[in-house]
Write a protein that binds this DNA or RNA. Structure first.
Lengths: 409, 409
DNA sequence: ACCATTTGGTCAAGAGGAGCACAAACCCGG
DNA sequence: CCGGGTTTGTGCTCCTCTTGACCAAATGGT
């Protein structure tokens, strides 16, 4: 049982770590800033900022450049930027429809992103791991000596135990307690930590950091893929729950008169708004996958009655569940990802109306419902963020335990 | 719109504040500790603890006493305890059935607690404020010079905006935008801050700090009074939401085929498990209040069929809503307060069964459902905690701005 | 060219915890 | 009752990290 954390005494180094962390985080999330802007943002003195940046430059995490003349009087302040060319995260995604790999630099630059389709079939962990490694290998050769890979983040379409990188349950991949993390770590031999998380959690993380929810502290993110997943952000932090299953909104009961769900219950949200429900209701092949959904959305755009009706149904039930979440959590923003992001242009108003009809006035007045901005790549971008997290939390740790640099593999 | 907080640079004083805070918090929550236990708990050195405690003793927040010989070898470590005799919080409660006042010492000792019944009628803010002040006055005379009152916490049966102490909406008191906080501050003339919050939020806070949920970081608290309220605790902190309306679970839609609710929607949780629903279903006077509920529970205990059926109904629907919350939040503990606490001995098993039937396996396996431990006084105890919070967060602030002590009023 | 303005560089000062040596207070055994 | 073992308080210096003051550098405006 998770009892309340042991009190931990603070010391001077704690302060240093926190200050280094907030500088790197700021540069990573908001992009390059001048030294004087950092002074303003943090409230620290110029001397302190100087010292901190010096340490970060020595660690090759940031670099300073002469800034363009700004037209204002006074000595120009050099621009500080994250060394996205040098400090890298490898992001992977094991989705139902596709596998993907991305190489992302500190600061968020996506150096490379490759996605390959895959058939919707159950395969072993080993096969998926091999395919992912195959996707990564050619890229590894291009890494220059001196490039520092800080970690590997993996987005998985399933329930993941983060502590040990085991996929507890991934019905659409056919896995149960699959050790994907260890498997990837062994095959890649990169000697950096591998972090796994659920694709919806990471999609939400990505939208929160670099997408539609940037800057918002109270966010409900709901993503429609084969299943329905979500990430609830409260006070700026994802709600993980006692065992990491927080935010699993797909199996919220919404319709007692509804259909049986794969989870054993009846009337789960997923049975009303999931991809399968959408396709069936529109008279499409329920196993048609992403292609069928695209076709459906196209048809609805051209006014096909059945397609439109299916979307309206999803919109209405999306509203029911969102109202519940809004009443409970009082978010400022709802971000729709995956399929919901794609259908938003067509039925955004219907979703909005259905939601407002059922949510409490004071909460509903405040909230905005918006589509995500990152599309299908949200989860893999979130995976990169996951891999960067330890560096952001304690940038000096890298300086302390500096590895000789990544060989050309 | 609440954007993510500005990065704030840390300095040495931040460390001091954090360390002072964790010591006072530890003593406040866990009771007296020896100096060496504090060393172990915080990980700080003996020297550091010594300095910190010295500062707290100077501020009259804690005191040291020779401890009883413990039978172990080694120099005995003095016992450090919060000065609950000296540092006080005043807690008030404006409930539908009663008004209450409590004087609570740092560390949680309840020096005095008085509750008076009140008829269920709409009255003005001024009347309630006057009644509360009348309850407090006699006690003020007994305060010794030197006693330090740190704040006033008020639990209100309604939706409260914490920032300015305005009761936005309290249907059962008949208020809308009532400035109870200001009104109390004026009448009491105590020159300390007045903090208002919702009774369910404070009930949850109290159970989390000193009741059934002590030590748990992921908690769902649901309280049945006239309405149904709740407090969701994630990562050890109450989930407040963007405007402070987080945790308002009473109007979660659970039954699309259900009854219309006062809020305008249909099938809110409250319409199935609220006090009124319980009484009506048991064939009692829906406006019978606390007395009618007590009678009902008594009757059910003796096996009256109708009373039992009503309780079973509540238990079943309690399960539906709890399952939703459990699936979404993955708590380790569900605490039932108010009426639900009282009916737990009778229908605890039914609640448990109904909940488990509908919640996802991995989340359900972990969670325990327990009744609260603080009974009707949970909210007022939470109100005292609310008033103490600023002192716990920054104990040194009191030292810096020391007031001459409270006169005999 | 000169001045106001803004910012970087340097260094001493202040805050605060760590670490160490020593003393104090307890238990126990003879 | 006395000495050894053990644990903890006390007092001191050292180390880390930020602040603040002073001066130099770089830019725009007149």
């Amino acid at each position: 049982m998770t009892t309340s954390r042991d009190v931990v005494g603070q010391r001077s180094e704690t302060v240093r770590r926190a200050n280094l962390s907030s500088i790197v985080r700021e540069l990573h999330l908001r992009g390059p800033l001048s030294r004087s802007e950092l002074v303003a943002r943090t409230g620290l003195t110029r001397s302190a900022i100087r010292g901190l940046i010096g340490e970060l430059v020595a660690a090759d995490l940031v670099e300073e450049r002469r800034s363009e003349p700004a037209g204002t009087p006074g000595r120009p302040s050099p621009e500080v930027r994250a060394r996205g060319d040098q400090t890298l995260a490898l992001a992977l995604e094991a989705n139902v429809d596709s596998l993907a790999m991305a190489l992302v630099g500190l600061g968020g630059t996506v150096h490379r992103l490759e996605r390959v389709d895959r058939p919707r079939a159950h395969v072993t962990v080993d096969e998926i791991a091999d395919d992912l490694v195959g996707l990564v290998r050619p890229m590894l050769g291009d890494l220059r000596s001196g490039d520092a890979l800080v970690g590997i983040g993996v987005a998985v379409a399933g329930v993941v135990r983060r502590s040990d990188g085991i996929v507890r349950h991934a019905p659409n991949l056919g896995w149960r307690d699959a050790p994907l993390g260890d498997r990837l770590a062994e095959s890649l031999e990169l000697d950096v930590p591998v972090w796994l998380a659920n694709e919806a959690d990471l999609g939400g993380l990505a939208e929160h950091r670099r997408g539609a929810a940037a800057g918002a502290d109270e966010v409900v993110y709901v993503m429609g893929e084969v299943g329905v997943g979500g990430n609830l952000i409260a006070a700026g932090r994802p709600l993980v729950g006692a065992a990491g299953y927080g935010g699993e909104v797909g199996h919220m009961p919404v319709n007692p008169e509804g259909l049986p769900c794969g989870c054993g219950a009846v009337g789960c949200w997923e049975t009303e708004i999931g991809e399968r429900a959408l396709l069936v209701r529109a008279g499409r092949d329920p196993d048609g996958g992403r292609a069928a959904v695209s076709e459906l959305i196209g048809a609805a755009g051209e006014g096909e009655a059945r397609a439109c009706a299916a979307l309206e149904h999803v919109a209405a039930w999306l509203g029911v569940g969102l109202a519940t979440l809004i009443n409970i959590l009082n978010p400022q923003l709802v971000v729709l990802g995956g399929v919901f992001e794609r259908i938003h242009p067509l039925v955004g108003d219907a979703i909005e109306a259905a939601t407002r009809r059922r949510s409490l006035r004071p909460s509903a007045d405040l909230v905005r419902i918006v589509p995500g901005q990152l599309g299908v790549d949200a989860p893999i971008i979130g995976a990169a963020e996951l891999a960067f997290e330890p560096v952001l939390a304690d940038p000096a740790a890298r300086l302390r335990s500096r590895v000789p640099a990544l060989a050309s593999a």
